[in-house]
Structure formats: C-alpha cells, structure tokens
Design a protein around this nucleic acid. Structure first.
Length: 424
DNA sequence: TCCTTCGT
C-alpha cells in the first residue's frame, strides 16, 4: 500500500518548487529540495534530522504545494506543546494525536479507527520519535487507505517512554523513503554545540578544551554530588550571569537525567528556589509545593482553556492571599490560577531532559553523575545538549560523560518491527 | 531502575 502512487498523483515539481520558493520568499537548500521532491513523489515517507536543519521549512513547502491543489491535509503531534509549536510555524490547525483520534477516557478508547477513519488525504505526524508502538498502531489504523502519510522527527532524540522504537525501526527497515536533513541553518554551523552534538551521535566524547570566550560548549569536571552541586550553583548564580550576561531564571535552564538523587531535578529545584527566590513573599503552599512571586515554574498538564501546555515555562508574578489566586507570566501573557489549580504547576529551575524534549533554551546546564548511571545514554545527552541555543555547560564526572556517549539503551529494545517491515 | 504522554 505504501508503494501506491500518492493521492495527488504526479506533480510537476520543476514548476511547483520555484513557485513555493517565490510564494514563501525562501530558497530551499539542495537537501531540502530533495526532501520536498521525495515526499511529494511517495505515498508514505519520513523526514528526519536534528534541530535547525529546516524540517519545518520543508513541511511548509510541501503543505503549500499540496493545498494549492485543493488536497486536504491534517497535522498532528504526540504532545500539546509540539502541536502548538507546529501550529505556530505552519499557521494551520494542529492537534494532539489523542484529540485527533477522539480519545475518551471513560470507555478508554479512540472513536476514530479503521471503521470510522480520519477524513483526510495527507496526514503529517510531527515529533514522531516520541510516539510509542501502541499509539502509532491506533493512529495508522485510523488513516484511510487512500491517504498519504508523512512522519517527521529526530531519530537521535530520546525514544518513546512507552514500548517500541517506531521511528527508528521504520527508518532502519529501509522499506520507506527517508529524507535525512543534516545541513544546519539555525545555529551557526561552526557552533561547538552543533559539532559536539554530532560528535555525541557518533559515540565519542566531544572536544572539551575549556577556553572560555571562544567556545559555547563547556565541560567542568566534578566528582561527588556535593561538588557537582557547588560548581553548578557557582556557574548558574555567578559565572554565567557575570561573564555572559545570562539571567539565572529567564535564560539558564538546568537539565538533569533524573528527578531523584543528589543532582536530580527535585533536589536542585529546592536549592535554587531558596538561593534565587528564598526571601520572596508572600508564599503559598498547595499540593506539597511552595510558590512565591519570582519563582520559575512549568505547566505540567495541558490546559486548552488558557492555551497553556505541558512543558510551558513561566514566572509567578503575583500571589493574592486574600482571593486565593496567583498570576503567572508565560512569554507575554499573564494567566490566572486559583490556588486549587496550583497542582497544574511545578518548579522549573531544573527539569529532566525527558521533559525538555521539544523545548529550547538560551543556556543549558547539565549535571552528569554516575548516580544517574541507569539513565546515561547517547540519546539522552544528545537531547539535552541540543536544547541549548547559545551555550551548553556540562558539570560532572568524565566517566559519566564517557559512559553516556557509548551507551545506546534504545537498541536493547527487542521490538521486531524493523524485521516485520522487511518481511515480504 | 528510570524516564513519562494523552483526556474531561
């Protein structure tokens, strides 16, 4: 079925591509043009590549060409945040996969399925590396036979928390046409973040010659959890703000492999809250968390009424003890919370690398310790490092870094999907 | 042993 011609038939791409370039006032790179052609010429295909390679530019070009032909398209993503981001960059409606399939918690199931399929001609799934095998199965069952399918994602990022290794298996099966974008446009191609991320992907420790002022990627050696924490505080509270002008709350994001433990997100959040905002008043404690004005927080469930999504980071601006209400600033919007809604928030000075997937920050600091041995792997380090736009600092044990780049946890999953896709 | 999405 995936070998059928696409539902829009054969398009004259030698005309369509210059048309879309002119219309969107862009110039596609050679690799992007090939990706557009490959996608348009196939019913099922994959676009993969890291941050800044222009996946969104390619998606936008494809959507414009196809929609100009009157073909209806549907866009979805596994998380609310990812859906919102793609919606902003394409100007089109994007929903979570669950909403698209009309998930209902009570009978626990999806209303959309093979008997009641989606009404679309092209389905685009963004951030598809985060989709596990169960959800992908439900989604593909609901795609009508005539429709085309485009999977977009970064196969080097963390694999889905749930079972499977779907995107990588599809790519490795070599049964589906793949467009692998590698050319970097967003960060400077000479950025050490970019080259380090690439080095990590090849399974090697990135170059950590520590020359401040030249590089945007640093490694600071520390052995024990206490030493890592001390150096991290010094870097976040003093060195990065003084030397590079980063604001410890607004610009710097601490990303950890784990929640628990000495260098886990919980512990670091408590320390940073008291160091950065400990004297702020008034304080409110609900659901075991204490907040005051100035605290950095993260929304932890999707709230469609307020247009705030799981992973959105904000700052508490005001707390009104008389009316039991708090006001939180997200970008340039201020959102109102009753105190009994504060279970939607948690502290965000530090967060796990898992939760950071799909977000980017000006400056990222990653504590790396053998305490998080169970979590150390290439995809984790790659995901953490590629969240940083201007600067990345890793603080911790050299041994932990060496183990992280050598370990590939996802490969241990025995999914057999690649093999099944290869079966005739 | 650890990471955690989705919906009302």
């Amino acid at each position: 079925m995936q070998l059928d011609p696409p539902p829009w038939g054969t398009l004259t791409l030698s005309k369509a591509i210059p048309w879309v370039e002119k219309r969107n006032r862009i110039t596609l790179s050679n690799s992007q043009r090939i990706a557009v052609e490959k996608t348009m010429n196939n019913k099922v295909s994959v676009i993969t590549g890291g941050p800044g390679v222009g996946k969104t530019t390619v998606i936008n070009s494809i959507l414009h060409i196809i929609r100009a032909k009157g073909i209806d398209t549907t866009l979805c993503a596994p998380t609310g945040r990812a859906a919102k981001r793609l919606s902003e960059s394409t100007g089109q409606q994007v929903t979570t996969i669950h909403r698209l399939l009309e998930f209902h918690p009570l009978p626990f199931g999806f209303k959309r399925n093979a008997d009641h399929p989606l009404d679309t001609t092209l389905l685009v799934i963004d951030e598809s590396s985060m989709v596990d095998v169960i959800l992908m199965n439900k989604l593909l069952c609901a795609v009508p036979d005539h429709a085309a399918l485009l999977l977009v994602g970064d196969v080097d990022q963390l694999s889905s928390v749930g079972p499977g290794y779907v995107l990588a298996d599809i790519i490795n099966s070599q049964k589906i046409p793949i467009s692998q974008l590698t050319e970097i446009f967003r960060q400077a191609a000479c950025s050490n973040i970019t080259t380090s991320a690439h080095t990590i992907n090849t399974g090697h420790v990135p170059n950590v010659t520590n020359k401040e002022g030249i590089s945007d990627f640093f490694f600071i050696s520390a052995e024990t959890a206490e030493e890592i924490t001390d150096k991290l505080l010094n870097v976040v509270l003093c060195r990065l703000p003084l030397r590079f002008g980063f604001d410890p709350v607004k610009d710097i994001q601490i990303l950890t492999p784990m929640n628990r433990g000495g260098v886990g997100a919980h512990s670091l959040n408590n320390i940073l809250q008291s160091q950065l905002n400990g004297n702020a008043e008034p304080k409110v404690t609900r659901y075991g968390r204490t907040f005051s004005p100035g605290d950095k927080i993260v929304q932890i469930i999707n709230n469609y009424n307020n247009d705030v999504f799981n992973g959105d980071i904000g700052i508490i601006r005001r707390i009104n003890l008389e009316d039991n209400e708090a006001f939180v600033q997200f970008d340039d919007r201020e959102i109102h919370y009753d105190f009994d809604e504060l279970d939607e928030l948690s502290l965000a000075y530090a967060t796990t690398i898992h939760k950071s997937q799909g977000s980017e920050y000006p400056c990222v600091v990653i504590p790396l310790s053998m305490q998080s041995y169970m979590m150390l792997e290439k995809n984790l380090l790659y995901t953490g490092v590629t969240r940083g736009k201007k600067m990345v600092v890793i603080i911790g044990q050299k041994k932990a870094l060496a183990i992280a780049v050598k370990t590939q946890r996802s490969m241990r999953r025995k999914t057999w999907l690649r093999e099944r896709l290869r079966m005739p």
